[in-house]
Design a protein around this nucleic acid. Structure first.
Lengths: 330, 330
DNA sequence: ATGAAAGCGCTAACAA
DNA sequence: TTGTTAGCGCTTTCAT
């Protein structure tokens, strides 16, 4: 059933029906009523595919993140949803799982091509591929990078944030500060946070002890737990942990508790992300809080600007706010 | 740039290009090569809208849930994603926020999206509207209902699950068991869980004390915390809490800790959902674990069956497995 | 094995 | 104010 059916039932042309549907002016009240009755009678619904084919916009943007099960991304996704809604846009969620191929698939749009724009949180994609992706459609990248890709980036200042976290630990008199989240992709946020860690230590005249630098797979709770276990097993003394996200930190705390260690008395812990969970955990988590609302706001409005074509400045890096939230764990 | 351009560059008809694109037989090697070269040279990408208009399927299913920030839904969404991927389907996530109007919007598809099917977790929508929604496109409902709607439902046996939770508490010698999650929508899962609570109590010869029955807005941590605070304020003695989801339970524990109450020694707590968070919390959470993988599997395959039209049985309620996971909190 | 041409349902330029 | 009609880019039937 199509526009035509409605038109013939209402005794008007398709154009008129289209006008009614799109709420355009220049329709007499009587005609409008007749058309609306016909629509109701037929239970007619416009075919979005046809509309899309015609006007070339879908009303959908994609948000591609590594893992929706990580609360940070869930909270970010919720924020993006809220902003997108204001623009009458829906969000298609894509999980890359940190898998490079999957990420590439999403980026090149082999799969979900029915989108007007893309907000991508890349984990392993290389600059040239990101550029290619952005050339294909309006794109905003989440997460700071070293390299200078000509694509809009939105991120907190990870070096500064990492420094803030470690400075706080130092100010509490901790000197053997472990770090969880070392990453092979030096160019990403993790590399930058490590930089902040290193800088804060050296400010305090401390050297980086490689035994205190731990890596952690997918940044889930279990990874934080395992890393902490390795640290404990190694016998290296430590009195604090800076985890590169809150779930790692929560996993670390779980492990410390299992070994009868008190947080923060024996070991102070600082996380990163300020997820809801950390506000209710025992102990409550001290963390770096990025402004997720601001990130979402910026990402979506930037995308909308590009979509509407009323953005003529060149791609840039937007640095969003962050702050240290001191709670109980450090 | 379209198929036509590719065709003329390759010196063939659009039909041939289409054949190559869709990997159909009956193409000579030479022709295929020439077409592929033309595609590469032009950097051509098929327009999915056109394809969609023609064949009427989008390769996208929507998952409409109240709130992605609730870990249960995030985990469920991840599971749905994984299953959908096997069918080469992408998942569009829609948040209803438990808002009735928003839910209706999603259900009726007013925001007519390019969607082949819908998995909906309704909170407040009425039977007739759900039916209407299902009539419109293949639909699977998540969460048990009392009423007998002719739509596929997938849910754990909430009455049995609620009973299991409370029986466990009783077996631990608790007799003043509070309940958090009372809901005005008696027909939904919450109402059924309460039924299980009531049944288990009466099995044990106990009466329901209305002072122990607490309601809780959106099932977030803060709601659990507030409900527990009210309970404490009321002065009603209690030695256990059955929270209708894990986040409520975690919020309750946070509140108990704040008041110097030990879990489970002073108050035992059982949750519902078995979210990852509860496996790492302090104390670890005892909970009812629905089989999320099974739920996702069933929901998606059911949808796929309807989409392919090779499902001719009538809509039904699928009861999925659940089990009690005893950890530290009770 | 390949080509010509008719739509899929909608919008919008142009006509009346 | 309303109608006519030409596409949007693809798939597909029917010819060749």
């Amino acid at each position: 059933m199509s526009l035509k059916d409605v038109a013939s039932l209402a005794g008007v042309s398709t154009k008129t029906v289209s006008n009614v549907l799109n709420d355009r002016p220049h329709i007499s009240a009587g005609t409008r009523r007749r058309v609306e009755e016909a629509i109701a009678e037929l239970g007619y619904r416009p075919n979005p595919a046809a509309r899309l084919l015609k006007q070339g916009r879908t009303g959908v943007i994609a948000l591609a993140i590594p893992d929706i099960e990580l609360p940070y991304f869930a909270e970010l996704a919720a924020a993006v949803h809220r902003v997108a809604e204001r623009f009458d846009y829906t969000v298609l969620l894509d999980q890359t799982g940190g898998d490079e191929d999957k990420e590439r698939l999403v980026a090149t749009g082999f799969r979900a091509h029915l989108i007007d724009g893309l907000i991508l949180s890349p984990l392993s994609l290389q600059p040239e591929e990101l550029l290619d992706c952005a050339a294909r459609r309006p794109t905003v990248l989440l997460g700071e990078r070293f390299y200078d890709v000509q694509v809009d980036h939105i991120a907190v200042d990870n070096v500064a944030a990492g420094r803030d976290a470690v400075r706080h630990l130092l100010s509490r008199g901790r000197e053997r500060i472990a770090m969880i989240g070392e990453d092979e992709f030096y160019a990403g946020p993790a590399g930058l946070r490590k930089r902040g860690y290193v800088e804060a230590l050296s400010e305090a005249g401390l050297d980086v002890d490689d035994d205190l630098v731990l890596s952690a797979g997918l940044f889930q709770r279990i990874d934080g737990m395992r890393a902490t276990q390795r640290l404990l097993d190694s016998g290296t003394p430590f009195d604090a942990i800076f985890a590169f996200n809150d779930t790692l930190a929560l996993g670390a705390i779980r492990c410390l508790h299992d070994h009868g260690l008190a947080v923060p008395d024996d070991v102070a812990v600082v996380g990163f992300d300020d997820v809801e969970e950390g506000r209710f955990s025992t102990p409550r988590l001290t963390t770096i809080a990025p402004d997720k609302e601001q990130i979402a706001e910026l990402a979506v409005t930037r995308l909308m600007g590009r979509l509407r074509g009323d953005l003529d400045d060149s791609p840039q890096l937007f640095s969003t706010a962050h702050r240290l939230v001191v709670r109980e764990s450090a």
